Simulated assay, not measured.
Amino acid sequence: MSSIKQFQVTFDCAEPERVARFWCEVLGYVILPPAGFDTWEEFDRSQSAEEQGSWCACSDPSGVGPRLFFQRVPEGKVVKNRVHLDVRVGTGLVGEERLAVLEAECARLLPLGAMRVRLLYDGNDSCIVMQDVEGNEFCVD
Score class of each variant (00 low, 15 high):
residue 84 H to G: 04
residue 85 L to N: 00
residue 96 E to L: 11
residue 76 G to M: 07
residue 100 A to C: 09
residue 48 S to A: 14
residue 114 A to L: 00
residue 63 G to R: 05
residue 130 M to K: 08
residue 137 E to Y: 04
residue 47 Q to S: 10
residue 25 E to A: 15
residue 21 R to W: 02
residue 40 W to L: 11
residue 37 F to A: 06
residue 122 D to N: 14
residue 57 A to L: 10
residue 18 R to K: 15
residue 126 S to Q: 07
residue 90 G to F: 02
residue 5 K to I: 09
residue 91 T to F: 13
residue 65 G to I: 06
residue 5 K to W: 00
residue 52 Q to D: 06
residue 77 K to P: 02
residue 65 G to T: 02
residue 63 G to K: 04
residue 127 C to E: 11
residue 35 A to K: 15
residue 125 D to Y: 13
residue 8 Q to P: 00
residue 88 R to T: 11
residue 19 V to F: 04
residue 136 N to C: 14
residue 28 G to L: 08
residue 48 S to G: 10
residue 73 V to Y: 06
residue 11 F to Y: 15
residue 22 F to D: 01
residue 65 G to R: 09
residue 39 T to Y: 02
residue 84 H to M: 11
residue 117 V to Q: 11
residue 6 Q to H: 12
residue 53 G to N: 07
residue 133 V to F: 05
residue 116 R to C: 09
residue 13 C to I: 02
residue 40 W to C: 03
residue 26 V to F: 00
residue 91 T to H: 14
residue 39 T to D: 06
residue 43 F to N: 12
residue 33 P to A: 11
residue 88 R to M: 15
residue 99 L to W: 01
residue 21 R to C: 01
residue 48 S to N: 13
residue 50 E to L: 11
residue 19 V to I: 10
residue 72 R to F: 08
residue 81 N to G: 08
residue 39 T to I: 06
residue 109 L to F: 00
residue 31 I to P: 02
residue 128 I to G: 00
residue 61 P to M: 07
residue 70 F to N: 04
residue 9 V to R: 03
residue 26 V to E: 02
residue 67 R to N: 11
residue 53 G to L: 10
residue 96 E to F: 01
residue 2 S to G: 09
residue 13 C to Q: 00
residue 57 A to S: 14
residue 25 E to C: 11
residue 130 M to G: 05
residue 91 T to P: 00
residue 64 V to Y: 10
residue 57 A to Y: 02
residue 134 E to N: 10
residue 8 Q to V: 00
residue 98 R to H: 02
residue 116 R to L: 11
residue 44 D to I: 03
residue 116 R to N: 06
residue 78 V to A: 15
residue 10 T to K: 06
residue 38 D to W: 01
residue 126 S to L: 04
residue 16 P to Q: 10
residue 2 S to H: 04
residue 32 L to I: 13
residue 27 L to I: 05
residue 20 A to E: 03
residue 134 E to P: 04
residue 129 V to K: 05
residue 123 G to Y: 05
residue 8 Q to D: 11
residue 120 L to S: 14
residue 102 L to V: 08
residue 71 Q to Y: 03
residue 47 Q to W: 03
residue 108 R to W: 00
residue 104 A to P: 03
residue 77 K to G: 01
residue 121 Y to D: 13
residue 60 D to V: 10
residue 33 P to L: 04
residue 129 V to Q: 06
residue 11 F to N: 05
residue 87 V to D: 09
residue 140 V to R: 01
residue 96 E to R: 15
residue 92 G to S: 03
residue 63 G to P: 04
residue 67 R to M: 14
residue 94 V to Q: 13
residue 17 E to Q: 14
residue 101 V to T: 13
residue 126 S to E: 02
residue 36 G to A: 07
residue 45 R to V: 01
residue 29 Y to A: 03
residue 123 G to M: 07
residue 118 R to P: 04
residue 62 S to N: 13
residue 59 S to R: 15
residue 106 C to N: 07
residue 121 Y to N: 11
residue 12 D to L: 09
residue 56 C to M: 08
residue 126 S to W: 03
residue 110 L to Q: 15
residue 38 D to S: 13
